[in-house]
């Protein structure tokens, strides 16, 4: 049972675009934070007008920036988000298996993976959703 779950594709597990925080690359930092708060996720994707993924920002990135960037908060909020993102995030496509995905998460010590299809952002795989599935279905 467990092994078939591990071998299943992540397709039905990742959160679709309409429910994840993402902003366009010309957005301000504050707009990005609003999206993360509204969607209750600690990761944000930044895309161009074609929805191609340009990078991500995580709660951890924000914590480190707050310490590193000595600016008034009002100035920090007005910064362009594009200058603050990780431009080379780990990504997956929807055809990979759950085992492959959690292996990446474990090795890289991350729990969110943007899901892309030909560079285009289509969602986020969140570790919590995998755990929920394990618990609720008593796999």
């Amino acid at each position: 049972m467990l092994s078939s779950f591990y071998k299943s594709k992540i397709e039905s597990l990742f959160i679709n675009l309409d429910k994840i925080p993402y902003v366009y690359e010309n957005s301000l930092f504050k707009e990005a934070l609003d999206q993360m708060i509204n969607n209750k996720l600690g990761v944000l994707c930044v895309v161009n007008n074609n929805l191609d993924l340009k990078g991500i920002l995580t709660d951890g990135d924000i914590r480190r920036k707050l310490i590193k960037i000595q600016k008034p908060l009002s100035a920090f909020f007005a910064d362009d988000i594009i200058n603050h993102i990780n431009k080379q995030p780990f990504t997956v496509n929807k055809t990979i298996t759950v085992l492959e995905a959690i292996t990446i998460m474990s090795e890289k010590k991350i729990w969110d993976l943007p899901v892309v299809e030909n560079k285009k952002l289509i969602g986020i795989l969140h570790l919590n959703d995998i755990l929920k599935k394990l618990i609720n279905n008593k796999i």
């Binding site: 010309n26 301000l28 009002s74 100035a75 007005a78 910064d79 362009d80």
Partner: peptide
């Protein structure tokens, strides 16, 4: 206006 907020008018 603070200098960083002029960006809103620019946009």
């Amino acid at each position: 206006m603070s200098p960083w907020n002029i960006k809103n008018s620019v946009k």
